[in-house]
Design a protein around this nucleic acid. Sequence first.
RNA 1: CGGGGAGUGGCUCAGCCUGGUAGAGCACCUGGUUCGGGACCAGGGGGUCGGAGGUUCAAAUCCUCUCUCCCCGACCA
Length: 372
Amino acid sequence: MAESPITSRNQDFATWYQDIVLQGDMAEPAEIVKGCMVIKANGYAVWELLQRQLDDRFKASGHQNMYFPLLIPQSFLQKEAEHVEGFSPELAVVTVAGGKQLEEPYVIRPTSETIIGHFFAKWIKSYRDLPVLVNQWANIIRWELRTRMFLRTTEFLWQEGHTAHANHEEAMEEVLRMLDVYADVAENVMAMPVIKGLKTQSERFAGALRTYSIEAFMQNGFALQAGTSHDLGQNFGKAFDVQFQNSEGQLDYVWQTSWGVSTRLIGGLIMSHSDDKGLVLPPKLAPTKAVMVPIYRKDDEKAKVLEAAHRIAKDVGAKIDDREGQSPGAKFFHWERRGVPIVLELGPRDLAAGNAVLKRRDTGTKEPMPQA
RNA sequence: CGGGGAGUGGCUCAGCCUGGUAGAGCACCUGGUUCGGGACCAGGGGGUCGGAGGUUCAAAUCCUCUCUCCCCGACCA
């Protein structure tokens, strides 16, 4: 019996988390780039599934995807007093480009309210232009003091929604609508129960009137802020002069919202479901839903088992693990650590009985499954 | 930024205290036997010990400086 490469949750939760991420082929520290990670195949595939679920809901509620520059003129950040105060300490700044000192440095976006505010001002003239409902899938950089894979990395992937409305009521409806979308995805896709609520004044987004969040509970009893939705009021509208004429012909500033979830969700997913044996993924977010492990000894068995295993795997949509030189035991551990929800076993005994063995990752239970 | 830990084949680490020209396990390659929860035997390839300087006949090992990563705390999606 080989020793498990995974530290138990009771022994050391933080180390357990790291082990799960590493052993589950989710990510690894980039090392050469401070605080950054390489999102590996299994982790990125989960992110893609999660993106799809979120994106479908954004589109269904009238939002459109756009893309804004990674680099933002430094002066933009300074236009909103609280915003600059909140983000200045964690900005990465580009001062040299093309071999020359830049006249005005660019900051690498920590979030895009400012640059999007600039363009909203160009695009919005009339109440008929409203609402503007934009989403951006992007990477951002925040120079955090301490990082943990997925939970807080220097660079991370996220989506940021940015909307502009004619009045505060509509903006607030949007803020709460998107909070509900986040809660829906968390609970019904990620199987991660959350509590919706209002953040305290000290915890709200820098530049927002109010910040709402969904909070999830982890196995160590900690809460994880899993998504936020901000009522920006007219703060950015005023800072970037986003004015429009209302139906009475008067000038007014737009009411804006912004909302985002990030690759941190994957950290929450891991800390919600995984166990001391490895990653556990809910079926809706599992890149590989089922794996078939064929078992055989002699050559004549091998031919029969492989033939049936391939056939059954194809029928049920399972990936077949027919790697040579790996024992079945080694394969079981391999897939268990990667969170595959269903592992099927097929050997001579099952062949004779007309069954395959079906094992669930979440419960660990095994049951016979008819081959037909 | 404060506190702790660690940098030695791809990975995990031993060796350092008591200097004497680099080891183990895993992984990898070849051959054979295996295969129902991490197989075994035999053979083989691969490192100059984070970096710089110093002491010494001789430095992974002693001294000085330095860089990086990880964990805990404060800050944040």
